[in-house]
Amino acid sequence: MSSTVTFEIPREVLHATRMSEDELRRELALHLFDEGKLSFGKARELAGMSVWDFQQLLGHRGIAVHYDVDAYEQDRQTLKRLGRI
């Protein structure tokens, strides 16, 4: 079951940032991802961007994609199972 949470940002605050609503949503997604509060997928969803576009934005901003040793090992096992390595 999916639901939506709505919160209000005063127009003056939005105006002070000189950003559109979409830009502000993107900034929030980037910040929450960088802080480890959102996964890549959820942050990308909040930003309203494709996987490729969000990855490019992260790279442009110098934000590293969270990829630890466990994820690396899982990827290696998957590649072995597929006969790629």
Rank of each mutant, 00 (worst) to 15 (best):
M1I: 10
S2A: 14
S2I: 14
S3N: 12
S3P: 02
S3Y: 10
T4F: 06
V5L: 08
V5G: 06
V5R: 09
V5T: 11
T6S: 08
T6Q: 11
F7Y: 11
F7H: 01
F7C: 02
F7G: 00
E8W: 03
I9N: 03
I9K: 02
I9S: 03
R11I: 01
E12T: 02
V13Q: 11
V13Y: 09
L14M: 06
L14Q: 02
L14C: 01
L14K: 00
H15A: 11
H15P: 03
H15M: 07
H15V: 07
H15T: 13
R18I: 07
R18Y: 04
M19C: 11
M19V: 02
M19L: 13
M19Y: 02
M19R: 07
S20I: 00
S20E: 07
E21Y: 00
E21P: 00
D22Q: 10
D22K: 09
E23M: 08
E23H: 03
E23Y: 00
L24Y: 14
L24P: 14
R25N: 08
R26Y: 08
E27I: 08
E27Y: 14
E27S: 15
E27P: 09
L28Q: 15
L28Y: 15
A29G: 10
A29S: 12
A29I: 11
A29L: 12
L30Y: 13
H31S: 12
F33M: 06
F33P: 03
F33G: 06
F33C: 04
D34G: 05
D34I: 05
D34Y: 09
E35W: 03
G36N: 12
G36R: 10
K37Y: 08
L38S: 12
S39A: 13
S39L: 12
F40A: 09
G41K: 15
G41Y: 15
K42L: 15
K42P: 04
E45Q: 13
E45G: 00
L46Y: 02
A47F: 10
G48V: 11
G48P: 12
M49T: 10
S50E: 10
S50A: 09
W52A: 01
D53N: 08
F54M: 03
F54S: 04
Q55I: 02
Q55W: 12
Q56P: 01
Q56R: 12
L57V: 12
L57F: 14
L58V: 09
L58W: 10
G59M: 10
G59N: 10
R61G: 07
G62L: 11
G62R: 11
G62M: 09
G62F: 13
I63D: 02
I63C: 04
I63Q: 01
A64E: 12
A64N: 09
A64Q: 13
V65D: 05
H66V: 14
Y67M: 08
Y67C: 07
Y67F: 15
D68F: 14
V69Y: 01
D70I: 12
A71L: 09
E73G: 00
E73Y: 04
E73V: 08
E73D: 05
Q74L: 06
D75R: 10
D75E: 10
R76S: 04
R76K: 13
Q77H: 05
Q77F: 02
Q77C: 04
T78L: 13
T78M: 08
T78R: 15
L79M: 08
K80E: 15
K80V: 15
R81I: 03
R81G: 03
L82F: 06
L82W: 07
L82Q: 13
G83M: 07
